[in-house]
Measured scan of single mutants.
Amino acid sequence: VGDQVLEIVPSNEEQIKNLLQLEAQEHLQLDFWKSPTTPGETAHVRVPFVNVQAVKVFLESQGIAYSIMIED
C-alpha cells in the first residue's frame, strides 16, 4: 500500500476553509492537484501513505465527502 489520491467534495464554504487549512499543514506533505474553490466541486489531493489515515479521520470528523481516486 502506498500513497493515495483522494477525490474530495466539499459541500459548503466552511468545508472549503477546512480543506485550505489542511493544505497549509506542511508536515502532512499533501499535494493538491486541484484545490477546493467552490462547494460541490471536486478537489484532488495526493496523500503520502504515512498520512492517509490522519487525513481520512480529519475529513470524516468534518463531514467532508471523499473517495479514493487512485490507490498506489
Rank of each mutant, 00 (worst) to 15 (best):
V1K: 12
V1Q: 14
V1L: 09
V1T: 12
V1D: 11
G2E: 09
G2C: 14
D3I: 11
Q4C: 14
Q4M: 14
V5R: 04
V5K: 05
V5N: 07
L6M: 07
L6D: 00
E7R: 15
E7P: 00
E7M: 14
E7I: 13
I8R: 00
V9F: 13
V9H: 10
P10C: 11
S11C: 13
N12Y: 02
E13S: 08
E13N: 10
Q15N: 02
Q15L: 01
I16N: 01
L19F: 02
L20Y: 09
L20R: 12
L20C: 06
Q21H: 13
L22Q: 03
A24Y: 09
A24F: 08
Q25S: 10
Q25W: 13
Q25A: 11
Q25C: 12
H27I: 07
L28C: 07
Q29P: 03
L30D: 01
L30E: 01
D31T: 15
F32M: 04
W33M: 11
W33Q: 08
W33L: 15
W33Y: 14
K34R: 07
S35V: 12
S35P: 14
S35A: 13
S35C: 14
P36T: 05
P36L: 05
P36G: 03
P39Y: 04
P39F: 04
G40H: 07
G40C: 08
E41K: 06
E41W: 09
E41D: 08
E41Y: 06
A43P: 00
A43V: 15
V45K: 00
R46Q: 05
V47G: 01
V47D: 00
P48R: 05
P48K: 06
F49Y: 11
V50W: 11
V50Y: 09
N51G: 04
V52H: 04
V52R: 04
V52Y: 09
Q53C: 10
Q53L: 11
K56T: 09
F58D: 01
F58Y: 11
F58V: 03
L59F: 03
L59T: 00
S61F: 06
S61A: 12
S61N: 11
G63Q: 07
I64Y: 04
I64M: 05
A65C: 08
Y66K: 00
S67Y: 09
S67F: 09
S67D: 04
S67G: 05
I68Y: 05
I68D: 03
M69I: 09
M69S: 06
I70S: 13
I70H: 11
E71K: 09
E71H: 08
D72W: 15
D72M: 14
